[in-house]
Every structure is written in structure tokens, then in C-alpha cells.
Design a protein around this nucleic acid. Structure first.
Lengths: 121, 121
DNA sequence: TCGTCGTATGAGCAGGCTTTCAGGTGTCCG
DNA sequence: CGGACACCTGAAAGCCTGCTCATACGACGA
């Protein structure tokens, strides 16, 4: 038990609420459906129907997902008649998204289905 | 339905497996406990007991969490006697972590509990 | 005004997740 | 060798999540 080292790490650790907020943001990004939605929005605003097609999920699921993203201020809506145009509203999320996508692009990370293949069997 | 625009977005969209992998990584980061573990490891390797204290959770929960991170190759172990020293093994995750933390640091994002406080009530 | 379209919402269900509890393995010290 | 220590693991509980189905709302066109 390296008490000193632990104390140092605990000091460097962000406040509990900050960690919780961060975890929440990552949680938003952790659903493939929502992730596709946000990636689709990287290029600019899109209406719900188009978003659903682009993300490959039902309109209902898309609407539910957008509701959550809206509640977290990750996206914003612009209404025009009966249409609703969504766009990315959170710069941090956009950055995270771009960083992650950049890594995926030129990635040597071949798909190797890590889950279940534990080390030291 | 802007067919052209949708087609373009769908073309720019990463492959399904890439999105899934990304979502999985974000999912790893979406648990406060695991997140604290990874943040603690940013400064270098730490043993399980210290990690548990630093992250503020039980040793069992910590061990379970580490098992998952290990399975995803996010952390690696160095064993010395009965001790197990863990360290971050994934450069992408490290970058994501650093970017996210940097945003949290100099953030104007005051805690405003976004969930439930929907727009246009 | 009536029907249709685009979207939003609520209930309910199936599935996954993390934690705790209890017990197990391997290592170090006397 | 026996006990203590650091860590690992399995099973069960409780919680939360995201989907589908059905329905409701506002806007547009005839």
C-alpha cells in the first residue's frame, strides 16, 4: 500500500461530480444508435426522418434517442413547420467524436473481438 | 427526405463494426468506477489495492472492473509476487481520457443536472 | 374542415450492467 | 508447515437501459 502515491493520485482525481458528468457523456456515446446519430450530425443539421435512415434505426427509436441527447444539451433543434432539424450543440462531444473517429480511421486496431478472450486463461 | 444528403452521410459513416467498437470503448469509459480507475492509471502503474482506494470502491468491484478492462486490452498487468500492477495499455483510450479531462478542467460547464430538464416543456 | 405527414411520447418488456457476498488460488513470512 | 496477505472468481440481486407498439400532437394541403 503506497500511501503517498495513492494520496497523490486522489488529489489529481477530478471531483466526484466531474467524473460522474464525464461518465455520463461517455455513456451517451456508448450506444451504437446514438453514436451513429451524432456521427451523422457531424456534417450538419438533419431532420429526424433522415437521421433515422442515416443511422439505420426506426423513427421511434431515433426520436427517443434524440430526446435523451436533447436533455443532455448534446444536440439542439430548429423547427420549421412540421419538420425538426437537429444539430450538434456540444463542442466537447464534437471533439471527442472527431478524436475517436480519427483513431478509428488510421487504426491498426484490427477487429479481434476482445471480450471473452481474457489474458492468462 | 433529402435522399442525396442522406446517401452522402451514409457514405461518410464508418463501418458498422467500427461504430460498434467505438461504442464499446465509450461504454468502458461510461462507468464512474472504471473511469476513476483509468484516470488513476494515467499517472502510471498501480496495484489493485491502491487502485481500489484511489477509485473509492471495494477491492472486489475493482478486480471485476479490471478484468473487463483487461479483456478489452485497455490495461495490462505486471505481476510481482502476490502483487498485480496495472497500467494503461491503450493509447487511444489514454488520448480520449486526456481530451475529456482537459475539457472538464477549464470548463464553463457548470453542473446543471441536464437529465429531466427537457427543452420546450 | 378532413386526412395525411413528421414528430413526440408513454407503457411495457427483454437484456445487460455493476455491485456484493462468499469462497478460491498462489505467495510470503515465521 | 501454517497463517496471513493480495488478488481473482462465480453466482445472485438490483438497477438501469433501449427497443417496439400504440397513440397523441401540430402543421400542411385540398
Amino acid at each position: 500500500m503506497d500511501t503517498e502515491r495513492v494520496a497523490q493520485v486522489r488529489t489529481a482525481m477530478p471531483a466526484g461530480e466531474d467524473v460522474a458528468d464525464l461518465a455520463e457523456v461517455f455513456g451517451l456515446l456508448s450506444d451504437p444508435g446514438r453514436l451513429r446519430l451524432m456521427v451523422a450530425l457531424l456534417g450538419g443539421e438533419l431532420c429526424v426522418g433522415d437521421l433515422a435512415v442515416a443511422a439505420g434505426s426506426s423513427e421511434s427509436a431515433t426520436s427517443h434517442a434524440l430526446r435523451i441527447l436533447r436533455a443532455h444539451r448534446v444536440v439542439s433543434v430548429r423547427r420549421s413547420g412540421r419538420m425538426a432539424y437537429y444539430s450538434l450543440a456540444d463542442a466537447h462531444v464534437r471533439t471527442l467524436l472527431e478524436v475517436a473517429l480519427a483513431h478509428v480511421e488510421h487504426s491498426v486496431m484490427v477487429h479481434q473481438h476482445p471480450v471473452g478472450s481474457d489474458v492468462r486463461g
